[in-house]
């Protein structure tokens, strides 16, 4: 029993590794996940818009991208992008693996986020799209100011989940052999473990990961509740501020059955 405790919960080991986890690991893990998420959100939004196009040849490339990247184990994608690309001469980020790590995690996130956005867009009643189009708004303008602001609140929990996945997947950059200043939480913990043969550094890294992911979950739950209740009486200054609940929408008439993503308005 004492062997168990000293392997996982050796206080001296934890105390030894924590400073570098916080000083370097936390920053790099957050940097990789946040940059990857920004990439994932932008690319995911574009993919989602393509996925709901009425034209099959617009949908097809987006569909292939999403299906392939969701179908691969993250470790394979990270290897292909991070190890393969530079070797193949596509050295967009030079020799540092950091950029490739962001690209790989971002590309994976984009595939999942695209599907989340698509479902959010399609959760908005078709009547909203029809109203926008009947006023002379273009397809994209209607999506941007009418449909997406309403759809986004339906998908917040799923999106939060994807944020958490990205934080966790950022550990896979370990594969790419980061240089000294670029090491993330897992890399530091595992280096420490290799030197000490003691797993307490992993425990310490685990705690730091939880410090990111658990508050994230609760922050999004709080935001979700805030959007559900209240705020509905105030005029909205910009198109992308919090939308009011969709739950109380008037019953859709026969002309408005279906959902926005199914719109085939020329």
């Amino acid at each position: 029993m004492s062997a168990f405790i000293s392997t996982f919960f050796s206080w001296s080991q934890i105390k030894g590794v924590l400073p570098s986890l916080f000083e370097q690991g936390l920053r790099n893990t957050l940097l990789i996940s946040v940059l990857a998420l920004v990439l994932g959100l932008v690319l995911g939004l574009v993919l989602a818009v393509l996925l709901i196009s009425p034209r099959w040849w617009v949908r097809l490339p987006a569909r292939i991208y999403v299906d392939v990247l969701r179908g691969l184990p993250a470790i394979v994608t990270v290897s292909l992008v991070g190890i393969g690309l530079p070797v193949a001469g596509v050295a967009i980020f030079g020799t540092s693996p950091f950029g490739y790590a962001v690209l790989a995690v971002g590309m994976i996130s984009a595939a999942y986020i695209a599907e989340i956005f698509r479902s959010g867009i399609q959760s908005v009643p078709l009547g909203q799209t029809e109203a926008g189009r009947s006023l002379g708004m273009s397809h994209l303008l209607t999506l941007w100011v009418i449909v997406i602001p309403q759809g986004i609140r339906n998908i917040l929990p799923a999106l939060a989940n994807q944020f958490i996945v990205a934080v966790k997947e950022s550990a896979l950059v370990y594969l790419l052999g980061l240089t000294a200043g670029e090491r993330d939480l897992y890399f530091i913990a595992s280096t420490w473990e290799a030197q000490t043969y003691n797993s307490s550094s992993f425990t310490a890294a685990a705690l730091v990961y939880l410090c990111i992911t658990i508050p994230l979950t609760y922050a999004v739950n709080w935001l979700d509740r805030r959007l559900r209740n209240g705020r509905s009486a105030r005029p909205v200054p910009t198109e992308l501020t919090a939308p009011a609940p969709v739950v109380g929408l008037p019953a859709a008439g026969p002309g408005s059955a279906g959902l926005a993503g199914e719109a085939r308005i020329p």
Partner: peptide, 29 residues
């Protein structure tokens, strides 16, 4: 899009934009 801006349409289920005030529903387009 330009042609539709010349044709007003009123729907059975209103189809107001629920995330905007009544005024903003009018000013947005």
């Amino acid at each position: 899009n330009r042609a539709r801006a010349r044709i007003g349409m009123v729907f059975q289920s209103f189809n107001l934009f629920p995330h905007m005030s009544a005024r903003r529903n009018i000013t947005l387009p």
